[in-house]
Design a binder for these strands. Structure first.
Length: 897
RNA sequence: GCCGGGAUGGCGGAAUCGGUAGACGCAGCGGAUUCAAAAUCCGCCGCUGGUAACAGUGUGGGGGUUCGAGUCCCCCUCCCGGCACCA
């Protein structure tokens, strides 16, 4: 047996073995439980990075582990092949996105194969292939028929220089990334999918997903954002006609504290008011500038302007002024809100900025009389910042010289409680007020209770080339006509080269000019393509029906689905996972599949981070630099404070740590690592670095150690060639052999527990501990029986993580032919028991010593022995023993004083 | 800004139910081997004081609960992920 560890040779041989045996080809087998293990498919960006290695190694460990436990395992792989980076590459290199994408797939597939993943490559798919996206189009048409898909206007980022729609990612500080032009919002028509029709089920079914991390379910529930409240109207008259301003609130109990209403800039009332108010028109224009991103809107300075119009409070009949506010979103609810400054932080700040009245209407808890006065912020000087008063029942609230502090104000006023200042609703609690006000509003036909969701419908139209064509034909006489099923797929031409100025499909006469399927006259084909989240919303189901050319899903889909273990980055916690859940439910309701939820168990991998460096371009755009092109500059404390580009020595901006990605050029390619140390070392190192769910800052220090361990394992194993064939007699063992066996089995017990909770880093340390123990134990014949058993445990335990070396050692040492066919090791209960146990002694919770006691020693004896120890006696001077706490098998705490 | 998560030696991390903080590695230091180096092997390794025994101190910061807190509760800081057209 070769005494040297030669990873390249070992790995090639193992991979050839698996390929020739078709080991990982999955077939339906009802006699075994199935285990569908799926890692999120990659975008073919060019090369793998460490985030991929982490993701796919986790999936592979779980696949191989379950296979050894007797499951029928499917682990497929494919490519999320449509998307923006291919168009960016085309702009830069003038290569068609299709060619760039297929080249990348070929390269990355080779990389994945060299890592030895147990993948069924026969089911490989790429979402840019017509036989895949045909079914996107087909299901889209079914949704259109059912009213789940529909058309309305959408707001997009518009670059006025390039005359093109920009993705949020392409907007840097409100400017186009290439042109530096200030981005505008623009309304254009687009298709939407009615995910809100499923909001209730998507929320309720989170309870059916106990195998998902709690945090992901919480994030999804918050995103769906169910709120029960009141939708009601403020009546008004405009241009001689009676109208209603509809708003939604979850705090109808504060309605008597309304001091104004705020509407979005796009609200019809705002636009009407701007007609004869140039100043307001200018303000509305200003609101419409800038990006459409919620994060931008939320961090914006809250601004507003009085429209001069008023509406009528539905319960008091008082006139309520209407303001336009940049923080009100047209896309949420009715695009208008009632404002109660006394009980809402945003309204509170807004009211002080524009000196609007603040009227508390909820009596603070513990108060039994109303505050002495209602605050009148008109008397305040809102721009002077000072200390807010602490309120007492007897105190005058109005303070002419103070800008009130919300923190302190809300300590008193923001909670739920009993109403005051509210006329006939005084003295009611939330529920009573809700019911009474609902009745009063209902009687006037001005609204009532409503459940509202934060979730919005899913806009799927993209004004981009490299995506799945939306199968619609626009006819002047027939309107928007769906492409007939027998003409699907609408195939995307693969030879276009985008240049950054809009969708090149618009310039392709052979694509655009078509005939109307209804009337046969000349018509235009839709050139918008679908959001790439559509592609990734059902690929997991297609792996199962991969070979079916006549149906989207079939019986095999229902055999493999749902995915038993889904593994992917935490960044997908909301969008991708929610869209996939929605899409599954739509497919179910159309009778295509029989499951409610696509992913039974979810493991969310933490991001692999690396340094991000960038520089502003002359035009105001942004350019990124790879960490290896850059030299770090440290401050006195050794912290990174800046960086220089090696090429020109000029400074670049350090943007902190962030997820490895193509667009930020901070990915680390595993290729060099694999070539130098082998795939097993790369896999072992990645699993050892941190537990899977944890964020990981990239560093290659420690790779040497992982490699060293594998070398030691090989060297140790090479001295025991054929040991697997030797008879094992565990009946009579010497004391040190018994001790070794105890150590191996307790370590195995811990490792199996850790595998069950996906903590692979400690499984690796368990394997290291086992090897340490074996090396220490001595190789004399007396120990050989235990060494033979231990090595078989160690190799099986480690094989999901480092399959190649374990495959080779397993057969060289003479165990069965294929380690993948071996059973998973379980600890022997007899080896776990110990006759003596060490217990720790504390005095007042401080560690002072330890004693060794017999396994079955009684509590009283242990207490007595412990107290007699010199390390305890030392601390008894001048004090008495109050009590003694004994934690069986662990510690004794003597409390003195 | 909102939602979710995180912070433990010089570094990555461990500590399962509130019970020995620092497992297992990396780096470092000392030694063996070697003509020498690499590789390998042995030993030390939180911080402060001490030759040592030992003592004090220590899990982002502040407060609390407890015989006992990295772990539970309250407040704060910083970092990461998401915020609907990056995927």
């Amino acid at each position: 047996m070769q005494p040297q560890y030669l990873p390249n040779e070992i790995e090639q041989r193992a991979q050839q073995h698996w390929e020739s045996q078709r080991t990982f080809t999955a077939v339906v087998d009802p006699s075994r439980p199935k285990y569908y293990c799926l890692s999120m498919f990659p975008y073919p960006s060019g090369k793998l990075h460490m985030g991929h290695v982490r993701n796919y190694t986790i999936g592979d460990v779980l696949s191989r582990y379950h296979r050894m436990r007797g499951y029928n395992v499917l682990q497929p792989m494919g490519w999320d092949a449509f998307g923006l980076p291919a168009e960016n590459a085309a702009i830069q290199n003038k290569v068609p996105p299709a060619q760039w994408t297929y080249d990348n797939i070929a390269y990355m597939k080779k990389q994945l194969q060299s890592l030895g993943f147990a993948i069924d490559w026969s089911r490989e798919l790429a979402t840019c292939q017509p036989d895949y996206y045909k079914w996107n189009q087909w299901l889209f048409l079914r949704m259109l028929e059912k009213g789940i898909a529909y058309k309305k206007t959408q707001v997009v980022n518009w670059d006025p220089v390039d005359q093109t729609v920009l993705a949020n990612e392409q907007v840097i500080d409100g400017r186009g990334w290439r042109t530096g032009a200030i981005v505008e919002k623009r309304e254009i028509p687009g298709y939407y999918l009615g995910i809100t029709q499923y909001a209730e089920e998507l929320l309720a079914d989170l309870d059916k997903l106990p195998g998902w991390p709690e945090r992901v379910r919480t994030m999804q529930a918050n995103w769906i954002g169910k709120s029960v409240g009141m939708r009601f109207a403020f009546p008004y008259e405009l241009d001689g006609k009676p109208e209603k301003l509809w708003v939604f609130t979850t705090r109808i109990d504060t309605v008597m504290g309304v001091s104004y209403c705020a509407v979005a800039a796009e609200h019809p009332l705002a636009e009407r008011a701007a007609r004869d108010n140039p100043e307001l028109a200018a303000f509305i224009e200003k609101c419409k500038r800038g990006s459409v991103m919620e994060a931008d809107l939320a961090t914006m300075e809250k601004e507003g302007m009085d429209t001069g119009l008023t509406v009528t409070h539905p319960l008091t009949g008082e006139a309520v002024p209407v303001w336009v506010a940049n923080y009100v979103l047209m896309s949420y609810g009715d695009g208008a809100v009632m404002a109660v400054p006394a009980h809402d932080e945003r309204d509170f700040a807004f009211a002080q900025k524009y000196t609007l009245p603040i009227k508390p209407v909820i009596l603070p808890a513990g108060w039994n009389e109303a505050p002495a006065a209602v605050i009148d912020a008109n008397h305040a000087a809102p721009h002077e910042i000072g200390e807010a008063p602490i309120f007492t029942p007897a105190m005058q609230i109005a303070d002419g010289n103070t800008l009130l502090d919300w923190q302190r104000w809300s300590d008193v006023f923001a909670q739920y409680g009993v109403l005051f200042n509210s006329g006939r609703y005084d003295g009611m609690n939330f529920e009573q007020a809700f019911d009474a006000i609902a009745a009063d509003l209902g009687a006037q036909n001005l609204g009532g209770p409503k459940t509202q969701f934060r979730l919005r419908d899913w806009g799927v139209s993209r004004q981009r080339y490299w995506g799945c064509p939306i199968p619609i034909i626009h006819c002047d006489s027939c309107g928007d006509v769906p492409v007939p099923d027998d003409q699907l797929p609408v195939v995307l031409p693969e030879d276009c080269v985008p240049d950054g100025s809009g969708n090149p499909l618009n310039k392709r006469a052979d694509f655009v000019n078509w005939t109307c399927p209804k009337c046969g006259r000349p018509a235009r084909r839709e050139t918008d393509t679908m959001d790439t989240f559509v592609d990734s919303s059902w690929y997991y189901a297609r792996y199962a029906s991969k070979f079916n050319t006549t149906a989207m899903a079939d019986a095999e889909t229902n055999y493999w689905m749902p995915v038993d273990q889904y593994i992917g980055g935490i960044e997908h916690a909301i969008l991708h996972l929610l869209y996939s859940r929605f899409w599954s439910k739509v497919m179910r309701d159309m009778g295509l599949v029989d499951y409610d939820e696509p992913f039974a168990n979810l493991l969310t991998q933490g991001m692999v981070l690396n340094h991000i460096f960038s520089r502003r371009t002359d035009k105001g755009g942004i350019e990124y630099f790879a960490p290896e092109e850059v030299e770090l500059v440290h401050d006195a404390a050794g912290k990174v404070c800046g960086a220089k580009l090696l090429a020109d020595g000029q400074p670049v901006d350090f943007q902190g740590m962030g997820t490895m990605s193509k667009s930020k050029k901070n990915g680390v390619d595993p290729q060099a690592l694999i070539e130098q140390y082998g795939a097993d070392t790369a896999r072992l190192f990645m699993m050892f670095a941190a537990p899977p769910e944890q964020t990981l800052e990239w560093s290659d220090s420690g790779v040497e150690g992982a490699h060293r361990f594998l070398k030691r394992l090989w060297t140790f194993g090479s001295e025991f060639e054929g040991i697997g064939k030797a008879p094992v007699d565990l009946a009579k063992l010497a004391a040190d052999a018994k001790k070794l066996r105890h150590e191996i089995h307790t370590t195995l017990k811990q490792a199996n527990y850790d595998l069950g909770r996906f903590q692979f880093n400690t499984v690796v340390s368990a394997a290291m501990k086992m090897l340490n123990a074996l090396e220490k134990a001595g190789k004399e014949p007396a120990n050989r029986a235990v060494i033979g058993e231990s090595l078989s445990i160690l190799l099986r335990l480690l094989s999901p993580i480092t399959p190649h070396i374990c495959h080779a050692l397993w057969s060289e040492l003479g165990y069965d032919a294929d380690i993948l066919a071996a059973s998973w090791p379980e600890p022997d209960a007899a080896a776990l028991v110990q006759d003596e146990i060490e217990m720790v002694i504390q005095v007042n919770g401080k560690l002072r010593g330890s004693i060794t006691v017999a396994r079955d020693m009684g509590r009283a004896t242990i207490e007595k022995l412990a107290v007699e120890e010199p390390c305890v006696q030392k601390h008894l001077e001048g004090v008495g023993i109050k009590k003694v706490i004994v934690v069986p098998g662990k510690l004794i705490n003597v409390v003195v004083g």
